[in-house]
Design a protein around this nucleic acid. Sequence first.
DNA 1: ATGAAAGCGCTAACAG
DNA 2: CTGTTAGCGCTTTCAT
Lengths: 330, 330
Amino acid sequence: MRRISIVTEKPKLEDVAKLAGVSPTTVSRVLNNRGAISDKTRRRVNNAIEQLNYHPNEIARSLFVSKTHFIGLIFPTTGHPFYGELVFQIESILSDKNYKVLICNTMDQAEKENKYLNMLLANQVDGMIVGAHNIGIETYQRAHLPIVAIDRKVSDTITVVSSDNYQGGRMAAEELLRQGRTKIIHINSVMQREALSSYQRRKGYEDVMTEHGLPFKTYTMDLPFDTEVKKQILSSILDKHPDLDGMFLGDDITAAIALSMVRKREKDIFIVGYDGTETITTCLPELTTIVQPIRSMAQLAVDLLLKEINDDFNDIKKNYVLPVTLKRGE
Amino acid sequence: MRRISIVTEKPKLEDVAKLAGVSPTTVSRVLNNRGAISDKTRRRVNNAIEQLNYHPNEIARSLFVSKTHFIGLIFPTTGHPFYGELVFQIESILSDKNYKVLICNTMDQAEKENKYLNMLLANQVDGMIVGAHNIGIETYQRAHLPIVAIDRKVSDTITVVSSDNYQGGRMAAEELLRQGRTKIIHINSVMQREALSSYQRRKGYEDVMTEHGLPFKTYTMDLPFDTEVKKQILSSILDKHPDLDGMFLGDDITAAIALSMVRKREKDIFIVGYDGTETITTCLPELTTIVQPIRSMAQLAVDLLLKEINDDFNDIKKNYVLPVTLKRGE
DNA sequence: ATGAAAGCGCTAACAG
DNA sequence: CTGTTAGCGCTTTCAT
């Protein structure tokens, strides 16, 4: 079967120029508000643009100016509320500043992270915000590109934005003590393996326990995105500690699983989670959790990134730590 | 303050060619595995590529071949678990096929949706998947671009993928009846205003009620992303119906809010939600809900989109409806 | 106030 | 098997 294609080719700047009876240069000037143009020709050009329903080709423009206004985002998965909300905030703020976002979900796989990094470089992104942590920071540095890391290990070669994980760990432990608990364990997931965010939280928890002369125990889970595995591990941990009365979980999803498991077993174990996303605090208001300031983290990360992009000679990398808050369960 | 820039410029294909002592064409051929190349030169070229740490500029390539391998995704917000998970799935599948994803969060604002649409067109995306519904479908059609809509109104000018919202509504109502409930209301949010997905769900619910000779009542909420407003509305609805024993909510987040509200009031109201995301079924396993097949929807949407992209003359638009399932609360 | 010409980095005829 | 040439759609000196 054949069909006669009536599809008019996408008009280009040259077509506009011809229709308006001017040079391409003039059209470009009208489009970018550059130089001086007589009102007459401006009108003629704008008419032609409208008649042809012309839209400038940003890709061609990007090639010429060697700036794409693309920002790459590398995160474990938007399917997790913390990253889903963080990515949403980052994208919203960037969009307001006329940047466009390429999204990459690594699922904590180093191989994917590497592939995405190369893809972003090949596509000439102006910068990246990275919340995945499965390949070394050096790999990113080789890119010689403005980069802001979220929750990555403190570094003086890259800008890092994080929330106060050490205080978060302390606050969680202190709240558990305040609730009269003493036999408290901590479970963190490997999701933030190299981030050290989980290390800091753990340290906060362990320090508080030590300061109060109490024993502590930290478990680390290996398959953070698989609910069934999480359940099994949690279950065996509960079996191993029949006298437990407090738990500090590294994230709210795991905390939620623990919560319903504890309820099912009719145990009196007080649970504190971590992240405090909109989703979880809305759906599970009874959960006590440490709230990360997602919105501020997004804002700061974007501000710093854009500053790096625009100030060529700024290579002072800093670590920014934002405060966390405790949200008591209802 | 001045600084001497030691930054070596990004190498280009020409640099590789010079270093390898061959023509740019040859380098291009090595990169794209096209034509016949002697092993000797291939090695020389590859060496040069490595020495210079050369990475091809995809933007330049895109311009030439007039294909970007960019896909635009327009959704309300990745901060909502349903869209967060859907976007994750879509991006993962597309990434496997070497497509890159530009993400757009409209927050249900028509103005943003329009801006994003134009941005995507200007950036020469090869296609789009649209789950936002605040501007008319005609606006999208004007783009003359492969597009797949998710949960949009049935249409014969655009491919639509959705789950079986009518059956979903029926299943929710039937489950409530099975639970011995008879005074059942339905609340849907305006989030899917024009999608008609919410209309279908409502119809399913109302049909079942009618078939059983029972009265029905449907409320529509106007500010779907604001938890506080939702609470107030839900609260006043509960006040208005003191004898209520069943509720069917248009999404799980709202259902979760209703659930904790009902618990607080110590009412015996059976609640059925909608969406069945990983996040919610994990965090709130006690919630009964209608599960949309997110993964299959993503897969189908991508398959159809890529087919449209690759088969130029295929303009048979179809509507694909995927089955939903009931997940009983634990 | 406007235009001609060159080129961003790449690829695809076409030639040899 | 390899190179020369032209050009994707745009912007920007440099003229006039």
